[in-house]
Computed example of a mutant assay.
Amino acid sequence: MTTILHIDSSARPGRSGEQAHGSHTRRLTARFIERYRQFDSRTEVIYRDVGAVPPSPVTGGWVHAAFTPPAAREPWMVEALAQSDALVDEVLAADIIVAGVPMYNFGPPAQFKAWLDNIVRVGRTFGFDRSRAGEPYWPLLADAGKQLVILSSRGDYGYGPGQRLEGINHVEGSVRSVFRYLGVTHAYDAAVEYDEFGDERLLRSLADAESATDRIAQVIASVRTRRHAA
């Protein structure tokens, strides 16, 4: 059984191609799920729409609670971490994390950043011990075999590696960095560009992103099949 955590974070409801002004990232994440299931029918999907229902942002009380040992937490601390615990449980249960992350002002949407902040949890997704020799922080998901797929969209074009706007693309790199910190190092991405132009270049970019999404689904399914057969 493969478990996929499917995250959508676009503020746009609906999917492009199905609804006027629908989301390209919602379109791509749904396509990934559909394609992956063609290769692996025994797939369970956990769905979380942080675009429609954003997680609460981290507060000072949240931080205090998170860094308090579980056995010493007061009732208010348990309550403060309840939503975060649920989000972390979903990440821990997932073999594949598929995140639709559109570019908003050169970075991820605030609602997706809030989700990231809630899943970076001491003692659950990363370890910390100030008395530990060498590095006091270490990833707790490193041996879990998890894989990350980032499906993005942007209004302009040229944000890819070596392209004109690479230096101000803070979407894929920032998301990869957070997951690498937690120990998830196998990551893939695809993106739609030219949304603000709305011409044939957008249509070509959509087609290319869909093809890339299909390839990623096939590659991950093949990797998982070989791993289970070994």
Rank of each mutant, 00 (worst) to 15 (best):
13 P>R: 07
44 E>V: 11
68 T>N: 14
80 A>H: 04
55 P>L: 01
48 R>S: 07
14 G>H: 01
193 E>M: 13
190 A>E: 00
96 I>L: 14
171 V>P: 05
115 W>S: 04
20 A>H: 01
218 Q>V: 08
163 Q>H: 11
187 A>Q: 06
95 D>S: 11
170 H>V: 02
56 S>Y: 02
133 A>N: 12
206 L>K: 13
99 A>D: 05
63 V>K: 06
144 A>W: 07
75 P>M: 13
186 H>E: 15
190 A>K: 02
154 R>V: 04
181 Y>P: 07
155 G>F: 08
118 N>P: 02
152 S>G: 09
31 R>T: 01
49 D>E: 00
104 Y>K: 05
115 W>D: 00
186 H>V: 12
72 A>Q: 15
124 R>V: 12
6 H>L: 00
191 A>T: 07
128 F>E: 02
127 G>Q: 13
65 A>P: 09
121 R>Q: 14
130 R>D: 09
41 S>W: 00
48 R>M: 04
30 A>L: 01
94 A>K: 05
196 E>P: 01
169 N>E: 15
218 Q>K: 11
202 L>H: 14
142 A>D: 05
157 Y>A: 11
203 L>D: 15
111 Q>N: 05
143 D>G: 13
92 L>N: 11
143 D>H: 13
59 T>K: 06
229 A>H: 07
74 E>F: 05
223 V>D: 15
151 L>W: 00
146 K>E: 01
172 E>T: 14
141 L>K: 08
87 L>N: 06
208 D>L: 13
186 H>D: 15
92 L>V: 14
221 A>M: 05
167 G>W: 05
151 L>Q: 06
96 I>N: 03
62 W>A: 03
225 T>G: 07
111 Q>V: 00
79 E>H: 09
56 S>P: 04
77 M>E: 15
200 E>P: 06
23 S>N: 02
29 T>R: 02
210 E>C: 07
167 G>S: 11
117 D>C: 04
124 R>F: 04
123 G>P: 12
119 I>Y: 03
158 G>E: 05
21 H>E: 05
73 R>F: 09
145 G>C: 05
196 E>Q: 10
173 G>A: 02
126 F>I: 04
14 G>E: 03
115 W>M: 04
143 D>L: 08
183 G>S: 10
208 D>I: 10
8 D>Q: 03
156 D>W: 06
183 G>L: 10
75 P>E: 12
17 G>W: 08
154 R>T: 09
227 R>M: 12
34 E>F: 02
140 L>D: 11
19 Q>H: 08
35 R>K: 09
178 V>Y: 02
7 I>S: 04
52 A>D: 05
79 E>C: 06
71 A>Q: 11
162 G>L: 11
105 N>T: 00
188 Y>W: 14
59 T>I: 10
1 M>I: 10
